[in-house]
Design a protein around this nucleic acid. Structure first.
Lengths: 106, 106
DNA sequence: CCTATATATGGTCATTTGGCCATATAGCCA
DNA sequence: TGGCTATATGGCCAAATGACCATATATAGG
């Protein structure tokens, strides 16, 4: 079968890279429900505000979230609902990984 | 809403990190159809054999692929079919990203 | 304009990633 | 055993990532 051109995989990789951090996945999970301001997400993540702002810039750069300014605050929200069904589909893999990771630790 | 514990997001991040490279996404795409030996994948990717072997180790470590030895060759195959529907779901985001990326280049 | 608050960005540093070369390991065959 | 092929791993280095602190920008209110 013929393969897609390289820029397809680069476009996908940009999205996957944006997802490749626990804090950003936590943020995406929160934004799936409803929009949140940066201050809420900062408290949720528990890192420096500047760190969270950079995480949000990464997600926005990948097109996974949108932002909206309201006065002095900026609200972020998810741009698609593909994530949760994806992680659901992967739940078997995730369960295996959690087991083997726990075994590696203990 | 209550958030999942941190190790959930770490488990997801391990998978997302494994996906976060164009060569590995190309490999995953190929393995979605049928299993391939390392030599085929090396030719497909067009990098050093050792590089491809490491990419495969990353994918295997994330639980996304399985391997099977047959004589002197090792065949890899996908462990789940979640990827293609995920990328399909994201196609709008991807199209936007390709446009803005092209604009950034041109 | 000045102050206060919310968010973004520059600087710096430690860690991780990804590439190749060289080499080690594994299985087949003589 | 020895040689041949397929795959994996150690070593090394350049580049990217992620964290924090300090500081810049933007908006609201006095």
């Amino acid at each position: 079968m013929k393969r897609k051109p390289a820029h397809y995989y680069e476009a996908r990789a940009r999205i996957a890279r944006a997802m490749a951090h626990p804090s950003r996945l936590l943020i995406l999970d929160a934004l799936q429900e409803r929009e949140h301001c940066v201050c809420e997400l900062t408290e949720l993540v528990g890192a420096d505000q500047s760190t969270v702002s950079r995480h949000l810039a990464v997600l926005k750069g990948a097109g996974l979230v949108q932002d909206r300014r309201e006065g002095v605050m900026v609200f972020y929200r998810a741009r698609c609902a593909c994530l949760s069904s994806f992680w659901n589909c992967l739940e078997n893999v995730l369960k295996e990984n959690l087991k083997s990771h726990a075994a590696a630790l203990g």
